[in-house]
Amino acid sequence: MAVFTPVTQDDLTTWITQFPLGVASSIRGIASGIENSNFFITTEHGEFVLTIFEKLTFAQLPFYLQLMRHLAESNVAVPAPIANNAGDLITPLHNKPAAIVSKLDGSCQMDPAPSHCAAVGAMLARMHLAAADFPIRQPNLRGIDWWRSTVPTVLSYMAPESMILLLDEMEFQEGFADSEAYMALPNGPIHADLFRNNVMFDGDRLTGFFDFYFAGCDTWLFDVAVTVNDWCIDLDSGVLDTSRVCALLDAYHAVRPFTASEKMAWQPMLRAAALRFWLSRLYDFHLPRDAEMLVPHDPGHFKRILQERIATAAPTLP
């Protein structure tokens, strides 16, 4: 991700001695994203990813690292956290919590076909089922409580038409969250940020999901909606590609069938997923933090997606 906390080769050489990874020969900052400081590192034992957490605390982090370990042990393709010699998954670096995880093979598929979407859908369903018995409960920290506290912060930066859209959608989503259909939705740990750049493919083979640091306990359908809103759209317009949507949903449904309550909640949930990322991009765009290599995302992208989800019915769940 963006580098807020620089780490030199000398810093790494000293710090990594506590891990069973041998000598570190290189470190390179990763330029995508805006939450944590991330680096590719190479050691005598291979390539890994080092993350320094800029917002998440030592108390919050066990959820994410233990969830990844739980999924990896359940044969879900995710990066495996590396413990230090004392068995700790989280250790301080420059007075901030840090962790090392294995690096997945392949590269991100930024122009997905229906076959890629099907692979993502099937793996997402497997992930939800595998995480169902995960014992740590932590809420989605970018859920509706965060939306409520963040809306007043960004309103002053917005044009009147955008303000009306945001306030109207918040009113709609608060009503949706109080509905019986919403209350009946299956839930558990979710990824919550499964965009194209958080999934690796080696050719047509899906090699893993990564970047679980927005994960939390929420409805599984929200996770599906977030994923569809990125993997199955025309990027310029936000319009859904029916063939990709159906491929992803059918593959998910074959592993974990959708419930009747989920079928009722599908269109509002697509809107909720669009709102969540429009709101976070508004915040990050107008209230950025200083960082090396920071590339803010365009809030208008998810505004267009939200408007499209309001205006046009999506393919129904199988």
Rank of each mutant, 00 (worst) to 15 (best):
E54K: 00
K55R: 14
K55N: 12
F58K: 08
A59M: 05
A59C: 04
A59H: 08
Q60F: 10
L61H: 03
P62S: 02
Y64D: 11
Y64H: 15
Y64E: 11
L65T: 12
Q66Y: 11
M68V: 12
L71N: 02
A72P: 00
N75L: 11
V76W: 03
V76R: 00
A77P: 04
A77E: 02
V78M: 03
V78W: 01
P79K: 02
A80W: 04
A80S: 13
P81M: 09
I82C: 04
I82G: 02
A83V: 13
N84D: 15
N85R: 14
A86K: 08
A86S: 13
G87L: 09
D88P: 01
D88E: 15
D88H: 12
L89A: 06
L89K: 01
T91K: 00
P92H: 05
L93H: 04
L93W: 03
N95P: 03
P97I: 09
I100D: 10
I100S: 10
V101P: 03
V101I: 07
S102F: 07
L104C: 10
D105H: 11
D105G: 14
G106M: 03
G106V: 07
Q109F: 04
Q109N: 12
M110W: 03
D111H: 10
D111V: 13
P112V: 08
S115V: 15
S115K: 06
H116I: 11
A118C: 06
V120P: 01
A122S: 13
M123V: 11
M123E: 15
R126Y: 10
H128V: 14
H128D: 12
H128A: 13
A130P: 08
A131Q: 02
A131H: 10
A132N: 09
D133S: 15
F134W: 09
F134S: 09
R137P: 00
Q138N: 05
Q138M: 15
P139D: 09
N140I: 09
R142S: 10
I144T: 08
R148Q: 13
T150P: 05
T150C: 12
T150Q: 08
V151E: 01
V151R: 01
P152D: 00
P152E: 02
P152A: 06
P152Q: 06
T153G: 00
V154I: 14
V154E: 05
L155P: 00
S156V: 15
Y157I: 01
Y157M: 08
A159S: 12
P160C: 04
P160F: 03
P160M: 06
M163I: 14
I164N: 03
